[in-house]
Design a protein around this nucleic acid. Structure first.
Lengths: 129, 129
DNA sequence: CTACAAGTTAGAGTTCACTCTAAGTCAATA
DNA sequence: TATTGACTTAGAGTGAACTCTAACTTGTAG
């Protein structure tokens, strides 16, 4: 498939896709006779996985490292596993942090709800005319 | 308390604390006779809450809006509640996304574990000498 | 009294992750 | 044949959130 089709599937701009290739997140795509990039299914699968890493806030630098190891074949599998385990740990910590913050948010919202309800009551009494 | 003490408690640099004041995330701190900033408990509490917003990836722009409403007193409580509810929704979505990605990560790590175990077996057989 | 650590300001610099521009090529349609 | 639109490249520009610099003043320990 051509770059335009891939932008539709991945919601990444063609600029971004070319940028990813430039910095080594994507392997150099095959070119058509006219020099246009031709992508295959494997690239799509890889982009989907990159999306997961991005969704969990992995930095481009770390993704580049992972991508490079992947290019270097099966001998890097143990390293790759370790990189992902390390990342997973950070994500778990972040997840716990978000959960805590979310309950603080819940609490704050409840406080506002209480306060606003209270104001309503007061206004009700004082605005009787 | 002075800025140095606050940096130790909040783990934010004095640069950042002054930056926050400059952009309106923190109200202008009282100054000592010599012009040094003097912070009170309320500022610390507010910084802790800002930390929760930051931990859930609220942008500085949105925090500025919230901070401004806060400065404008109780009449903005309903607006503030709505802002937080809107933010909470985004956080919940992000949380779900992270959970999904985390299980993809688990799966990938398992795949590596399997593959490496398999390699171990093969080597064990072929390296019997 | 002298160091020196900690504070002040305005404003410049950095990093990240894109995002866009300019100038050009190529493929398909009216 | 002319135009339209998708593609190519190298490289410049952007916005977010800090982070640091320079030049200066102030507070405290020896």
């Amino acid at each position: 498939m051509k770059i335009g089709e891939l932008t539709k599937i991945t919601k990444l701009s063609s600029h971004t896709l070319r940028y990813y290739e430039r910095i080594g997140l994507l392997p150099r795509a095959h070119r058509s006779s006219s020099g246009h990039r031709i992508y295959d299914e494997a690239t799509l699968t890889w982009l989907e996985f990159l999306g997961r890493l991005k969704a969990t806030d992995m930095s481009i630098k770390e993704m580049q490292l992972y991508a490079k190891m992947r290019q270097n074949g099966p001998s890097t599998e143990l390293e790759r596993q370790k990189l992902l385990e390390h990342h997973r740990l950070k994500v778990r910590i972040k997840l716990a942090e978000i959960k805590t913050s979310l309950s603080v948010l819940d609490c704050k919202i409840d406080t506002y709800a209480e306060s606003i309800k209270q104001k309503g009551k007061t206004n009700g009494r004082s605005n009787h005319k």
